[in-house]
Design a protein around this nucleic acid. Sequence first.
DNA 1: ATAAGTGCAAAACATTTGCAATATA
DNA 2: TATATTGCAAATGTTTTGCACTTAT
Lengths: 146, 146
Amino acid sequence: MHKQHKKERFEEFRKICREHGLNVTPQRIAVYEALSGSKNHPSAEEIFRRLVSNFPELSIDTVYRTLNTFAHIGLIRIVGGYGEVRRYDPDTQPHHHFRCLKCSRIVDFESPEFSRLKVPDVLQRKCRITGVKVVFEGLCEECLSR
Amino acid sequence: MHKQHKKERFEEFRKICREHGLNVTPQRIAVYEALSGSKNHPSAEEIFRRLVSNFPELSIDTVYRTLNTFAHIGLIRIVGGYGEVRRYDPDTQPHHHFRCLKCSRIVDFESPEFSRLKVPDVLQRKCRITGVKVVFEGLCEECLSR
DNA sequence: ATAAGTGCAAAACATTTGCAATATA
DNA sequence: TATATTGCAAATGTTTTGCACTTAT
C-alpha cells in the first residue's frame, strides 16, 4: 500500500460512496480519515475517542454504524481477533498479520508469496476460496523488553 | 490429531489438571468432553446448551470460567474470528483453518508445509514467533449450494 | 479442614436498534 | 423536497464478577 495525499484519498472516498449510493457526511469522512490514518487496527471505541474531541456531537453508535457500512461495501475489513473487541483494518489489499499474544498488537506485513499459497485439495474440492491470510503469533518487540 | 478413547482422554485430562493445580470437577469434565468431542468450534453458549439437558445445575458463567481457565493453561484455544461471539478449539496442535464468509463455519485442515512457513525477516528481527496459522476464506460447500 | 470451584444474581461491556430530528443530494 | 443519516436513549447480547454456599482434595 502506498501513501496517498489527503485530498486524493478524499476524492476516492467520495467516489466510492457515490458508487454505493451513500451520502458523504462529516461523520463518514471523519471515521474514514481516522481509520485510514491509523496504523494500529483500532476498535470503534478507539476511533470514537480519537475523533470526539474535535467533533463533540459525534456519537459512538454512528461510529459503529459507519464502520459496519464501510465493511459491508468492502471499503474496510474487520480484522481477525481472538474474541476481544472488534477491530478494523483500513487495508483491503492482500496482506498478513503478526499478532502479539500479550498485548494484542497487530503488525501488518506484505508477502506476495504467502498471498499465493496453494489451496489444499481438501478445500479446493469443496469450497470457493476468495482469500488467504497468514497470521504469525508470538511476542512483540515491546512485550519482549519488559 | 488422532482419536483417543474416552477413558484415555479422561486420564490425560486429570493429569493436566493436577499439573496445573486445578481440581477435577464434574463441570470441568463435562465442558472438556463437550468441546473435545465437537467438530464445529463451538461458543460457550453452544457448549452450555449441549450439556445443560443432562446437567441441569450447570450454569453458563461456569462454562465461561471453565473455558477461560482451559485456554489459560493451554488446554484449548480461542479461535480467530471476526468480532462475533468467542469460539473455542479443542485442537492445540498446529493446524489451519478455512472460514466461510457467509455462515462462519470453520473447517480444520493440517499442512505440515504451512506450519513450517518461513518467518519473514521484518518479524524475525523484532519479535519472538511461537506459531503460524493460515486462514483461507471463501464460501463453504453448503453455502455454495444455496 | 481448607482451599478451590460453583451458582446465583447483578454488573460491565460491546454492539445494535427504533424513532424523531437533521442534513445531504 | 425527499430520502438517507444521525443522535439519543433504550434494548440486546456477551462475558465477567462478588459473594455465600458447596465440593474436591
